[in-house]
């Protein structure tokens, strides 16, 4: 069947009526033309809109990096914090106010180099926030240096003799850290990205969405749209998202990055635990009153 033509006027009307535009700020993204991140700034408004979460009840928290400029481009509350510190800032926000939807946005250097110490703790506590990790395998804001997810033999200004360090495997790390929702998307497949964002945000607990993206300016050789487009693949048929071992095995196959939900499970969130502690403390106090 031949593709149906898209008429600009109809599409604009459709977008305006969708309601997603209220989530977009008037600020123009600072990213380079063609950057994979544009699909994300498009995806999040759609996801929030579909989920019916009001902009005033949403806080987008970021660190420092190209992707971390994200909060300026959406019309929600935003906290553009320090390099590597988005997760703890978000943890503070969510701890203080359960009613807010808190979304953390950051890149591979922000999350896994300088901020790497915070990731396991956000995951193990199962704090009910969503972490959107934009992985382009390079430091873009500082004009092209190696990152913790850069490929071996990747050539950059700080690895003029090529990068020899083993890259991290963020998906495998998050699975072992105890994240209760782990998935992967690709900037080149924006509809799926939006769907996965929606699912991640809807998940009750700590959700981690790893988003593969090119850096069109500083990486002309490795993670290009062409290369990534050839590498990414669908989830193997029958993948059981409740099977942690299967999810880990899938994450370890770095040659064939599968897109979709790797793993999801339910357990008490940090807020549940806070409430349990309050209950226990009240019991303690009541017991003390009874004997005193």
């Amino acid at each position: 069947m031949a593709p149906q033509p898209i008429y600009l006027e109809e599409k604009l009307k459709e977008i305006q009526e969708s309601g997603r535009l209220v989530y977009r700020s008037k600020a123009m993204p600072t990213w380079c033309p063609g950057c994979g991140y544009f699909s994300m700034v498009d995806g999040l408004p759609g996801a929030l809109n579909d989920l019916g979460i009001a902009p005033k009840d949403t806080v987008v928290v970021s660190g420092i990096g190209c992707s971390s400029r994200f909060p300026f481009f959406v019309n929600t509350y935003g906290f553009h914090s320090l390099h590597g510190r988005a997760l703890p800032v978000a943890t503070g926000i969510k701890t203080a106010n359960d009613a807010l939807t808190v979304i953390v946005v950051g890149g591979d250097g922000d999350g896994f180099a300088i901020g790497g110490g915070h990731v396991p703790h956000a995951a193990r506590r199962n704090i009910d926030i969503t972490y959107l990790l934009f992985d382009n395998g390079i430091y873009g804001l500082t004009k092209g240096q190696t990152s913790p997810t850069s490929a071996i033999n990747f050539h950059t200004t700080t690895s003029p003799y090529d990068n020899l360090d083993q890259p991290l495997n963020p998906l495998l790390m998050l699975l072992t850290y105890g994240a209760t929702w782990v998935g992967q998307a690709y900037a080149g497949q924006p509809q799926q990205l939006e769907e996965l964002m929606k699912e991640a945000i809807a998940h009750r607990g700590f959700s981690y969405l790893h988003i593969l993206s090119p850096c069109v300016t500083f990486d002309k050789t490795d993670r290009t749209y062409v290369n990534l487009g050839e590498l990414v693949c669908d989830m193997p048929p029958g993948h059981d998202t409740s099977n942690l071992s299967a999810a880990m095995a899938l994450a370890m196959d770095t040659a064939h990055p599968a897109l979709g939900v790797y793993y999801k499970t339910e357990r008490a969130t940090l807020a549940d635990n806070f409430e349990e502690i309050v209950r226990r403390a009240a019991g303690d106090a009541a017991a003390k009153r009874a004997t005193g």
């Binding site: 503070g92 701890t95 203080a96 110490g117 915070h118 703790h121």
Partner: peptide
Amino acid sequence: IAAIATTIGAGYTG
């Protein structure tokens, strides 16, 4: 670092 970051995050909410 997380202690002050969370504190400031919470302070930001009021």
